[in-house]
Design a protein around this nucleic acid. Sequence first.
DNA 1: GGACGTGGGAGACCAATGAACAAGTCGGTT
DNA 2: AACCGACTTGTTCATTGGTCTCCCACGTCC
Lengths: 363, 363
Amino acid sequence: MNKSVGIKDVAAAAGVSVTTVSHVLNDVVYARVGAETRERVHEAARRLGYGPNRLAQALRTQRSGMIGFISEEIATTPHAGRIILGAEETARARGYRIMIINSTSTSSQDSRENDVADLLDRQVDGILYATMYHRKLVVPKNLVGLPAVLVDSEDISHTVSSVIPDEIAGARSAVQTLIDAGHTRIGMLNNTDDVPATHSRLKAFKDTLADAGLPYHEELVQSEASEVPGGHQAALRLLKTPSRPTAVFCYNDRMAMGAYRAAGELGLRIPDDISIVGFDNQQLIAENIYPALTTVALPHYEMGAWATENLIDAIEGKTDLQLFAAHPTLLPCPLVLRDSVASPKHQDASSRAAPGSPTHANT
Amino acid sequence: MNKSVGIKDVAAAAGVSVTTVSHVLNDVVYARVGAETRERVHEAARRLGYGPNRLAQALRTQRSGMIGFISEEIATTPHAGRIILGAEETARARGYRIMIINSTSTSSQDSRENDVADLLDRQVDGILYATMYHRKLVVPKNLVGLPAVLVDSEDISHTVSSVIPDEIAGARSAVQTLIDAGHTRIGMLNNTDDVPATHSRLKAFKDTLADAGLPYHEELVQSEASEVPGGHQAALRLLKTPSRPTAVFCYNDRMAMGAYRAAGELGLRIPDDISIVGFDNQQLIAENIYPALTTVALPHYEMGAWATENLIDAIEGKTDLQLFAAHPTLLPCPLVLRDSVASPKHQDASSRAAPGSPTHANT
DNA sequence: GGACGTGGGAGACCAATGAACAAGTCGGTT
DNA sequence: AACCGACTTGTTCATTGGTCTCCCACGTCC
């Protein structure tokens, strides 16, 4: 096409050397250039529509202004988009761009190392490594020593810094909002996978109950696969216990969706007969089921932003990421209030709605 | 850190010149290098873990191997992830990488041009421009003439090639599946926005009815905002008409979700009393509502892949994108069969389920 | 006439590619 | 015996688009 304009075109147009053009356009402090020459250069650059070739620049300065972003399963979860967005926006604000590589949670350690090497060949200044849910992983070994931050996961050996959601605090606030509404018999629908969230959310559940002086019974926690059918099954078991809880804290929004169905089948209205809170704030679900679900948001955007901000600080020598490596940084999980929580009806806990009685369907 | 190895390190290790290393590593056809030397070079490169500096390479060859991806609202729709994934995977398979820039549908024409210029400064070989839903747009003027493909939108002036979903065929197959199940009174819940999909899906609805010799009545189409509440309202109107349809084609899955709620409230079971088909195949909804929703999938992954494949072909001179510019390329929208469609019960159409009768909740 | 200040340029360098050229070998020719 | 290609095997050098470290020319001042 139209041969793109280079610095030498600007130099010729302004009648100066390329060195001078570089000096004025980069505002080099030690450069001594007359005001009039300066103006000529700027004018010529503007007129020709000059933009520096970032590759040539990168080659010389050893700084590409590019950040590699390795993400597992970019597409399987809407959350990934939020992380990318957080990373992209803060990177851009600081003059960096994001180069994306998609990986899978099942890919071999070798292939992970290749992804890193690949990015390194392209001279990225740093690497963001994101997983699709919070977990502990062994990082590719060529990642250590580099400016790098893990997003939504922890390095099992604690050599790479990382940022994760504060599950405990988030789960506590979810349970607390139930307690604050006056509930004293609260159940939980938990996940069966051995991931950090399963344990932290359960621990937060127990601790919050204990702090409030509320009793905890084994049968109040029912576990199943963390999908809608699992939530449905677990909720059915939970809601059929002799002393039915008046509120349920769900491992995630999908299980909560299953709980909605179970409640509907048992003729229980939400939130009148039973309050429900979820986790994850998957908008498509939480906003759209009826009544809208009160849940805990995962700070995906914020994690992407935090990781990028600190990665760039490290790249620019303003921070030492090693300082963060020992412990993951925790970001708050804010409670999102919607319509699925209410005060329990003050009547004898044994008075149950007759199954099959007229009721609104919960969608 | 460890000074990364360059071609000259390999050259030194193998006892040859850098040119020779370049020649053997790139398998340059006209290079005459002895087999033994070749082996020495390969061995040295392997031993040192050499990988070429892609930036230097790009500078010299005027080909960066990078594709710019401008996406509107990366995070607002899960669909964007599928497009990115399709683009990333096919790009990677061909040795290219994706550089992402997030834009917004509200950003000014100037800012769009800046995004393109930005990518150009970084020497991308081509540009993918994706929107979050199918629409017509005026492209940044510095995009024309470049290797570029629009994903999920059309250039209003038809100068840039693009790929979009085949809405018509997709909608037809949705309606047809209802007809094939034996339905003769079919309603539609449509969107109120003036976007291409609103018109194509309606047209496909009417045409398919006509082709099957089925009558079309105005009151069979109810329009509202294309979200759950809109679907709920529109479905309520539609299902309360004197001659209630036995099947409903919904503009999208969110409206279908609203229809589920309306059906539940009216004591209508899906699919026994009413069959429903959606559009979009938003997995979080379609797979999780009860019963699972039969719907039409939008080929996001495929559009990303097609666009990238053809963009790279154009970059490599194997294709002329101008050939595609006049008409957008249509990709099929496959029907995804789940559980929300059944044959209508063969009884008098006036026998209605009594509202409020015992029923499963539809979640 | 040396020191100093001002305005600007030459040329190396970053890590590669690629066109042109050079050195060594060998068989054949005159 | 000397020379002449032809072939093999590598190397030299310019180039890509910038940045950056000197360096130089010219005035001026004391």
